[in-house]
Design a binder for these strands. Structure first.
Lengths: 110, 110
DNA sequence: GGATAATACCTAAGTGAATTATGTATAAGA
DNA sequence: TCTTATACATAATTCACTTAGGTATTATCC
C-alpha cells in the first residue's frame, strides 16, 4: 500500500478513467477493478468512493442506472459527454504533473 | 499551474529532495528553486512551506543554522542522517506510486 | 442450520495537509 | 518615496480524505 496521502487529488481521475476504459460500472466493481489494476497497491475506501461518485454525478460527469439483482440494488455509472471531456483533461493534467515532479525530484520514469 | 490538489502529499518529498540535491538551503530559496525546477508550474506557498520545514525539523529530518544577513535573519536547513534515509524512501515511494498510477490510468510515461 | 465472508449500497464525525489571509521587518530599485 | 523583493512566521479556514458506523442480501464453510 502506498502512503494514502499521495492518493489525494487523484481519486476523481481514477474513477473517471476506469469508467472511460470499461464503460458501465458500479461502485463495488470499481473498487475491485482498481485493486486489481494496481496489484492491491491502491485500495479505494467506500467512504471516499461513494461520495466521489455522487459528486461527479451531481456535476454532470456521470449518469446512473439502477438495477435489481434479486433483491439487491446495483447502481451502474457511466460517463456523460462532459465526463469524457473532463477525463481527457484530468488525465493529461496528471501526466503533466508527473513530468513536472520527475523534473523537480530528478528521477527517471519509464 | 497544476491543480493544487495533486500537490498534496508531495510537499515533504519535494523539500527533502531539493535539500538532498543542493545541500544547505533556506526557505525562501527553496521556494524559488522549486519554481525554477518546475518552470513555474509548482508554486510553494509560505503558509505550507514554513510549517512543513518546522515539522520536518521537529521529526529530526532537518537541522537548522540561523545566520544574520545585515539585520535580516536567514535560517538554513540541511538534512540529518535520518533525513537522508527518509528522502530515499519517499522518493522511491513516489516513483512506485507513479508506476502504479500509470498502470491504473493506462498512460505511458517517458 | 448457523456463523462467517462476500456483495452492495450509504452517511457522519474526525483528521490533517493544504490555502488564504495576515503580520513583521529589512534591503533594493525606480 | 514608493513599490518590490527578501525573509521569516502564524492563525483561520477549507476540503478530500480516513475511520467508523449503519443496512441488507447472497454465498460459503463447517
Amino acid at each position: 500500500m502506498h502512503s494514502p496521502e499521495l492518493l489525494k487529488g487523484t481519486l476523481q481521475t481514477i474513477v473517471l478513467k476506469v469508467l472511460k476504459d470499461r464503460g458501465r460500472m458500479y461502485g463495488y466493481e470499481i473498487t475491485n477493478c482498481v485493486r486489481e489494476l494496481s496489484d492491491s497497491r491502491l485500495q479505494l475506501t467506500e467512504g471516499a468512493l461513494y461520495p466521489t461518485l455522487h459528486k461527479l454525478e451531481a456535476e454532470g460527469f456521470l449518469k446512473t442506472e439502477t438495477i435489481m439483482i434479486g433483491k439487491r440494488v446495483r447502481k451502474y455509472y457511466s460517463l456523460t459527454a462532459e465526463g469524457r471531456a473532463s477525463t481527457r483533461e484530468r488525465v493529461s493534467e496528471f501526466v503533466d504533473f508527473i513530468r513536472t515532479m520527475s523534473n523537480v525530484l530528478q528521477v527517471e520514469l519509464g
